[in-house]
């Protein structure tokens, strides 16, 4: 090893890279198991740090047992029937629906940002307000949201809208502004009209960057969604976590949290793949 291993010019070998990149996972797991075991030795009924076996049982029940609110599936039901009545499936479905609906609501936000960036009157009309709104801590407005939108789906989705859309609007505004003016002039000289420029030149160019910006905000969307579900809900992943927390059902909460992380990762991965497929010309700088 001619170059010290902590230097910038170090070149880790493949095997070492693999080992090092998984080390913290292994260490985290080991530390957890050690603490869990210690706590269980002291108190066999400890619920704060369930063992792997307890989590497996908890998760098995979450996947295979009908949710408490649901009608029990007929005992002879096959695997898929039981799955469709299960706690995990119901919660995932409810949360996903809200999540995707909120993502769909980001599309008008992107278009608004685009128009603000291109059309000066739209820009002056909205920009100051959106800048102000971006700094509002949406969670503190909850009572108003409840009164304005009720406590059903609408108020949860509005929470996300208020929390995340200003960021997305400003992001697409800035990205639109970042398109070189030459491009816009060029499009006009080729005979394009205002809307051709907006949708066929600028939007197509900023689309991959906007998608990336939405990817970065996925966690914020999830955070607001969770806050909403924890405060008032009848189903959803965060509803279950809030409920189980009340009697320390960590054996289900921990797998649920990991499941949410996996789902978010998959959404992010899917968006990245779609982005690459749709925009082969785009290279992240």
């Amino acid at each position: 090893m001619s170059v010290g291993f902590l230097l910038i010019h170090a070149r880790p070998q493949r095997a070492w890279s693999a080992i090092l990149s998984w080390f913290l996972f292994a260490a985290g797991l080991a530390a957890y198991l050690w603490v869990a075991q210690a706590r269980h030795r002291e108190n066999p009924e400890d619920r704060v740090t369930p063992t792997l076996a307890q989590m497996a049982t908890g998760m098995y029940n979450a996947v295979m047992q009908p949710a408490e609110e649901d009608e029990a599936a007929p005992p002879a039901a096959n695997f898929y029937d039981r799955l469709s009545h299960s706690m995990l499936w119901r919660d995932t479905r409810a949360t996903s629906r809200r999540f995707l609906l909120s993502l769909a609501l980001l599309i008008p936000a992107v278009l608004l940002g685009l128009h603000m960036g291109l059309f000066p009157y739209v820009g002056v009309f909205f920009l100051r307000f959106v800048l102000f709104f971006d700094k509002i801590v949406a969670l503190s407005l909850l009572p108003i949201l409840f009164i304005a939108f009720g406590i059903d789906e609408l108020s949860k989705i509005m929470l996300i809208v208020i929390g995340v859309t200003p960021t997305i609007i400003l992001d697409s505004f800035n990205l639109t502004r970042g398109v070189p003016p030459e491009q816009i002039v060029k499009a006009f000289t080729l005979g394009a009209g205002d809307f051709d420029v907006a949708y066929r030149v600028v939007l197509k160019q900023v689309a991959p960057r906007v998608l990336n910006s939405i990817r970065l905000n996925l966690k914020a969307v999830m955070l607001f969604l969770f806050a909403g579900e924890m405060i008032a809900s009848t189903d959803g992943l965060a509803y279950r976590i809030a409920l189980l927390r009340r009697h320390m059902g960590m054996d289900v909460i921990i797998p649920y949290v990991l499941w949410v992380a996996l789902l978010l990762f998959l959404v992010d991965f899917a968006m990245r793949t779609v982005n690459r497929k749709l925009h082969p010309w785009f290279h992240e700088a």
Partner: peptide, 24 residues
């Protein structure tokens, strides 16, 4: 009991939530 649609609502928000939602 099972037929009542229970909505889990945090105690810090339950008053405004109920007052604001005529459907509850």
């Amino acid at each position: 009991i099972k037929r009542v649609r229970m909505i889990n609502t945090s105690d810090s928000d339950i008053a405004t939530a109920f007052i604001g939602d005529a459907n509850a």
